[in-house]
Design a protein around this nucleic acid. Structure first.
Lengths: 343, 343
DNA sequence: CTGTTAGCGCGTTCAG
DNA sequence: CTGAACGCGCTAACAG
């Protein structure tokens, strides 16, 4: 307090102010501030003192104008609410952060008109690159191929093969899930998953069936497609248990579905993981670590996805051109009590 | 496609390019682009054609330099992962969006050193204002009083009374919750909540007790403080039911706790909402709409909180100085099957 | 109605 | 080692 009255320079002090106060020219002040060698030690001290005194910070607008780069990237999300964008966003923010670049956040709310509007905003702000974060793994329309900045598509791949996309490998995830359950000796395994309109549901089911086949096992039933909800998990599990009482493994397409499965298994007096194994998908902690038993789940490593997306942008900024095509990120299994017997 | 080869001006075309191509001076081009009146219709058309042709977008860096404003605000979050910041963030983004201002996102990861670092970044980028989003409702240290831009604290209020803060009214929420349960005829009501180190837990408990007293009711037991987890909800509910079998209402400090309560009530064969009412807190949809029955909950209106924070920043930018003090946002109840009997 | 000039805040030559 | 001059892309005065 007290020096709040000194806010006579409300919009930030300029290098000129510093120079005047230190009794040097702007050029000298600039060199001192930027730590260049060609400046006398005593002069530098005077300058730095002045900097401290008036709280000078160089204006990025001016610097960008000269450098031709803004050290800013745009993050264009299609649906901020979606729970998948947040980890990606933190991963990217994390990577950019240590690279001294700032993140300009835009949310298109799933509206393509708003998306192009925001794209213009980002281009006008001369971002050095753009990450487009989708809310599902279904391919999304490209922003266009003749943009003046590198663009990377995260989570939802672009529908244009020349664009660079990063997306979780859901086929591998489905396969990993069933392999995990098989490794605990299960042989009668069912798959309950979400809406088949989602590529995620189809891909995971595909991986599930591949894994089963590779182990020489038959599916106990066709994959059950429904919704991504606990309610569907409960209902589908009940249906399956009544029809195939010998089921000993449930591979679920989401943690919500798996939670529902756990609940119904309790109602049927089957013990998890002793009699039946259950595995979820997404590793959504609020769901996986609060259930009884805790839920083993497939983790898509979304934060890593965000980090890598940022890395690709960095490389592109540094001149290395972006290769076209899609990178599939391998998932991993996080083991918990719904498959592992604690002792 | 096809014109991707025309990317000879990779870093964006300049107004000079437009002017040259249209055969006019930069000043005229500027006026045409900005829709000023003092320009001939035919000239304007030539200019706009040139704009289209080379895909010109004005550089915000240059514009900012002149205007002295960047039309950018900083969003400084303390913990992006936290589930409370996301709605606030979307609310703010929403409001800024319609005001043509962009959002610069920084995440301090709960680290105060990183916070001051990011603050400097934001100031150097000459943002027109800053919203600080905390991850709990406990007061947080002020960024300082002598900043050259307006600052608003959202969710976590500043510990400095002269700062402007917006935070949910948890006392009102606790009271609202118990009033709702009382309105359904419940008289033997218990409160299970989270860690008492959190102001949220204490405030909600306080509101709970006020509401009870105002209705002339005695608490069936002291509020049960624990953790914000389903496990604690299950355990605390079991303890209470064994000790006070006549309990007919559970006011919970979080939706997770309420989910746990629902589960234990099932184990005890009490029907919800016929015999017992249960209400959660936060209205976290994945928890409230997937339970059996669905969970009535208190909604903090975080998106509205974000929107209002943005509004305060707007007002401050427009010259209206920020008043000191904290705005408490009234919560509302979202009714679902855990209190309302469907028929 | 159009073009010329100056300057926003800064970094970077190039003489002194 | 220091300072004067120029330019980044753009807009606001003024002249023409």
């Amino acid at each position: 307090m007290g020096n709040s009255a000194r806010a006579g320079q409300p919009r930030g002090a300029t290098l000129g102010d510093v120079a005047r106060l230190a009794g040097v020219s702007m050029a000298t002040a600039s060199k001192a501030v930027n730590g260049r060698a060609e400046v006398a030690a005593t002069t530098r001290q005077r300058v730095m003192a002045a900097v401290e005194e008036i709280g000078f910070t160089p204006s990025s607008s001016a610097q960008s104008l000269i450098a031709g780069r803004t050290s800013t990237v745009g993050l264009l999300t299609c649906d901020l609410e979606g729970r998948f964008v947040l980890p990606i966003l933190t991963g990217a923010e994390d990577a950019f952060d240590s690279g001294q670049v700032s993140v300009l956040l835009c949310d298109a709310r799933g509206d393509s008109i708003r998306a192009t509007y925001h794209l213009n905003t980002l281009l006008s702000r001369r971002v050095d690159g753009i990450i487009v974060v989708g809310s599902s793994t279904d391919p999304r329309p490209t922003l266009g191929r003749d943009l003046p900045v590198p663009v990377v598509y995260a989570y939802a791949p672009s529908d244009h093969p020349a664009d660079h996309s990063l997306t979780p490998d859901n086929v591998a995830g489905g396969r990993l899930a069933v392999e995990h359950v098989i490794s605990f000796g299960r042989r009668r395994i069912a798959h309950i998953t979400g809406n088949p309109d989602y590529a995620a549901a189809r891909d995971r089911a595909k991986g599930f069936q591949e894994g089963l086949a590779a182990a020489g096992l038959d599916a106990v039933a066709e994959p059950m497609f429904g919704t991504w909800s606990e309610g569907w998990g409960r209902d589908a599990t009940a249906i399956l248990l009544e029809r195939y009482p010998d089921i000993d493994g449930f591979v679920c397409g989401s943690d919500q579905i798996a939670r529902g499965a756990l609940e119904t298994l309790r109602d049927f007096d089957r013990s998890v993981p002793e009699d039946v194994s259950v595995i979820g998908y997404d590793n959504w902690e609020v769901l996986t670590t609060n259930s009884r038993p805790e839920l083993t789940s497939i983790d898509c490593r979304l934060q890593e996805l965000g980090r890598r997306s940022a890395q690709r942008i960095f490389e592109a900024i540094d001149g290395e051109p972006l290769s076209g095509g899609t990178e599939y990120l391998a998932p991993r299994v996080v083991m918990r009590g719904s498959t592992v017997i604690s002792r």
